[in-house]
Computed example of a mutant assay.
Amino acid sequence: MPLFSDPALSTAPRRRRLEAPATSSEPLKDKALEVHRRLCGVYGCPIPYFHSLDPLSELISSLLSHRTRNADSGRAFKALRARWPDWNAVEEAEVAEIEETIRGVTWPELKAPRIKAVLSAVRARAGKLSLDFLETLSVDEARGWLEAIPGIGPKTSAAVLSFSTLRMPALPVDSHHHRVAQRTGLIGPKVDVGPSHAVLRAQLPDDWSAQALYDNHEVLMLHGQQVCFHRSPACGRCVLLDICPTGQARQAKATEGR
């Protein structure tokens, strides 16, 4: 159910923008902080933001990136911006034209109509094609507003708030981040990516800044990309090995097999 239906919400007073966390045990909180500390030592925090898009543009970029390599989704985003002057024109374009323009992404036949539908939903609910008003809301309110739109889930809503020029303290979780969290035992083996957002956020301090949460996402994602691979993770050179039950089990099995 939408949290807001009135376009006038863009004039609502600024609220506290912290995300209300779920509960988490103290040992897991301590472990999450230790994982963060070690990985920041490896990858270098604070990590610069990789781009500075307005929140609506970040939303479209995030929709294009689903199950798609960054290079391919980046090219598709640039192609949209080059073909049409603004998002109003994209909203009015034919689905076939959008699909042809973003053909380099995974499932362009699904993403093209979704982009049009999302743009129309933003206009209908906010009164115009802009998400700048989200800065006046709390993180929970802003995420609820976004996730009320079909096709927008926890990862996309968090990405819009964190990665865009809003720079709000939300924690996105991608597949690499999720894999590292599961293998280190921060989340259970049956916790999917969507539900993991609340669990992992609850393990971090309530008052962490947008930069700190962005760093947390980035270092876990980078570790998943560069060390904790989907297949054959490089456990022997992992700085988390002594606190990672999966890595320790893999190392023990490898030793037994010698």
Score class of each variant (00 low, 15 high):
Met1Asp: 12
Asp6Phe: 04
Asp6Met: 07
Asp6Pro: 07
Thr11Met: 13
Ala12Arg: 15
Ala12Gly: 13
Arg15Tyr: 03
Leu18Ile: 13
Pro21Phe: 04
Pro21Ser: 04
Ser24Glu: 14
Pro27Met: 03
Leu28Asn: 01
Lys29Phe: 04
Ala32Gly: 02
Val35Arg: 00
Arg38Ile: 00
Arg38Phe: 00
Gly41Leu: 09
Cys45Met: 06
Pro46Tyr: 06
Pro48Ala: 07
His51Gln: 09
Glu58Leu: 07
Leu59His: 12
Ile60Gly: 03
Ser61Asp: 14
Leu64Asp: 00
Ser73Arg: 13
Arg75Lys: 15
Phe77Cys: 05
Lys78Ala: 13
Arg81His: 05
Arg81Gln: 08
Arg81Met: 05
Arg83Ser: 01
Trp84Arg: 01
Trp84Phe: 06
Pro85His: 15
Pro85Phe: 14
Pro85Cys: 14
Asp86Ala: 15
Asp86Ile: 05
Asp86Gly: 10
Trp87Ile: 01
Glu91Cys: 13
Glu92Ile: 08
Glu94Val: 14
Val95Thr: 12
Val95Phe: 10
Glu97Lys: 12
Glu99Asn: 11
Glu99Cys: 15
Thr101Val: 09
Thr101Asp: 06
Thr106Arg: 10
Trp107Thr: 14
Glu109Lys: 05
Glu109Asp: 14
Glu109Val: 08
Lys111Ala: 04
Pro113His: 09
Pro113Arg: 08
Arg114Val: 02
Arg114Leu: 08
Ala117Asn: 15
Val118Tyr: 05
Leu119Asp: 02
Ser120His: 11
Ala121Leu: 06
Ala126His: 11
Gly127His: 06
Lys128Asp: 15
Leu131Val: 04
Leu131Gln: 05
Glu135Ser: 09
Leu137Ile: 09
Val139Trp: 00
Val139Phe: 03
Arg143Asn: 04
Ser157Cys: 13
Ser157Glu: 10
Ala158Met: 07
Ala159Phe: 09
Ala159Gly: 04
Val160Thr: 05
Leu161Trp: 09
Ser162Cys: 11
Phe163Gln: 08
Thr165Ser: 10
Arg167His: 07
Arg167Phe: 02
Ala170Gly: 06
Val173Lys: 00
Val173Pro: 00
Asp174Gln: 05
Arg179Lys: 03
Arg179Phe: 01
Ala181Lys: 13
Gln182Lys: 12
Thr184Gly: 00
Thr184Glu: 02
Gly185Gln: 02
Gly188Ala: 13
Val193Thr: 11
Gly194Pro: 12
His197Ser: 10
Val199Gly: 01
Leu200Asp: 08
Arg201Val: 04
Asp206Lys: 07
Ser209Thr: 11
Glu218Ala: 12
Leu220Tyr: 03
Leu220Gly: 04
Met221His: 13
His223Ile: 03
Gly224Phe: 01
Gln225Glu: 12
Gln225Asp: 11
Gln226Ser: 13
Val227Ala: 00
Phe229Gly: 05
Phe229Lys: 12
Ile243Tyr: 00
Cys244Gln: 05
Pro245Ile: 03
Thr246Trp: 15
Gly247Ile: 02
Gln251Pro: 09
Gln251Lys: 14
Ala254Ile: 06
Thr255Gln: 15
Thr255Gly: 09
Glu256Lys: 11
Gly257Leu: 15
